[in-house]
Design a protein around this nucleic acid. Sequence first.
DNA 1: GTTGAGTTTGCAATCGGTTGCAGGTTATGT
DNA 2: ACATAACCTGCAACCGATTGCAAACTCAAC
Lengths: 342, 342
Amino acid sequence: MAATIRDVARLAGVSASTVSRALSLPGMVNAATRARVAAAVEQLGYEPNRAARGLITGRTGTIGLVVPDLANPFFASVTKGVQARARRHDVAVFVADTDEDPAAEAGLVRALSKQVDGVILCSPRASSDELAAIAQDTTVVLVNRAAEGIPGVTYDNEGGMRQAVAHLVALGHHRIAWVGGPATSWSTQHRGLGLRNAVEELRATLAPVGNFAPTYEGGMAAADQVIATGATAVVAYNDLVAIGLLARLHARGLAVPGDLSVVGVDDIAMSSMARPALTTVRLPKQEAGRIAVELLLTMLDDPESAATSAGTHGGLHGELHGELIVRDSTGPAPHTEKGALA
Amino acid sequence: MAATIRDVARLAGVSASTVSRALSLPGMVNAATRARVAAAVEQLGYEPNRAARGLITGRTGTIGLVVPDLANPFFASVTKGVQARARRHDVAVFVADTDEDPAAEAGLVRALSKQVDGVILCSPRASSDELAAIAQDTTVVLVNRAAEGIPGVTYDNEGGMRQAVAHLVALGHHRIAWVGGPATSWSTQHRGLGLRNAVEELRATLAPVGNFAPTYEGGMAAADQVIATGATAVVAYNDLVAIGLLARLHARGLAVPGDLSVVGVDDIAMSSMARPALTTVRLPKQEAGRIAVELLLTMLDDPESAATSAGTHGGLHGELHGELIVRDSTGPAPHTEKGALA
DNA sequence: GTTGAGTTTGCAATCGGTTGCAGGTTATGT
DNA sequence: ACATAACCTGCAACCGATTGCAAACTCAAC
């Protein structure tokens, strides 16, 4: 069995309390005894039992991460970031995948919350009210969504969309289609908003074609409606949707970017492998995970100050910026005024 | 604060021990008291503290999962499977990503092992000796690798490769190139072996082009060497490599499958989105994760019998079979005898 | 040689559960 | 009515740490 604090104490000829202090409050113990304890720790390969410590300190040294779908590269990246940063802080991460089921979300968080110090909710599907309820009795950080009174890290969707539109307008596009994700999604709403602002400002027009699943299939489903709008460019909710569009457009015999330019959002690995390689707004995914961890740990270490510190909605908040990555799926607008089907 | 067992005891008018038994050994307590306890539990929303329980039972109810790279869709899927199955058993999962660093692996496992009941090692990079050392003081299950005396779940690489070769031979291919992954990888070795056996049996010839990184870039790097072999078909270590091949072959002006047929392994989501859609040997990834969990929990519940039970290498073992998924990247061999560059 | 302050250390309680053992109750058999 | 067994339940110890409190010790100053 693993060595306990008492084993160390016996070997060092001191009491368990002294060992405990030698490790956590070195200033409180004599240098000589501290050395003896250190030697005993070394010899026994002692490592404090976290569960036992957690019992008395009330801190488990563990955080939870809830994502809708690990198989989605976007969430896999966020998870990677969370996990890496947590390790630096010597904190372990419980990962739970809701399988895109909003109903499962709340229950999962509740179950998790008993075992962890706090929870990172990635792109929560839950309603604002549900979120507020959850945040009531658990320390929560949101990723990819803002909610009154709950800290979180979000992307500057407006800015990202503006970059995309500016790029397209510079290429001569005037009519831009928009394939939204799930209607209830916070990102969809904000990307749509950013798009509307940007086209107005840059004297273009927007042709929204509705809401689709944030998947390859969603993109395939949207493609024909995009064509029907007569737009010469399309912005997709995310890269998976954009790649689905690419596939269906190809099947319909449209050239990208010859007939239609396509822009995605996220910059997942797949995007640079697509044919043509996808122009997209790159979001720093791992960075979002890292910041979420920092936010959460800050709240845990210092709940009062964290709650009152500056930031959107009067709480801690991080905002990340997207970066337009221009690849081969965008090009000059075709000469015909009326649309892609010249 | 959360309710404790004593709160429940007080409310139900019994002792803490009775509450404990009512919950874990219902048969030992009177039906009437059991009902009172249940009511109190319900009313207080009581949930036993896992850390406290673990302290005395020695079981944490947590398992660890170590993967080389969460951003790789293959490992993301395995993780998803592990996580889902663990939840069913009411077991939490610590996820750790080594970032493809073999050196970090052992240390990570060691750190993890203090906090969990057992560890699932996915595609370990460590040497057999290191694995043996780790398995010495931790309950370990391997995924994607077999090692003497350590339980694990592997794929029938030989069978999968045989299916791929049979498919290609039926299409008229005689000379088949093979792009291996990392030389030290267990999968590379076994896939190469399966390939050699299959070509021999089916009267074709194999042209190995060496070892490459198991990535898109690896595939790009291998492509020109593949062309130089004069083979009319190529089997890639995995789908990422195959998609890299596709990209470079396209750039070189070769048609797939017109000039060269391409087969991958894994069947990640990206494969059906590739152009042309990739023919591949589908490996049940989530299933591997699920089985790994079952194996691990079996070992934990019953260490002696598990160790001696039947299976390869005298331990528990699961073997999964691949399934050939034919898409658009394979077709009849070109008529010219000598190669793809006709 | 005392006193007092400052430094080190140990005792014992505590966190929230589980479990061996003993005591109390009730049912069963005669 | 009494012995015996079967069944429930509570007491108390324990898991492995942390921490308030008090005792012990050191040292300097008076």
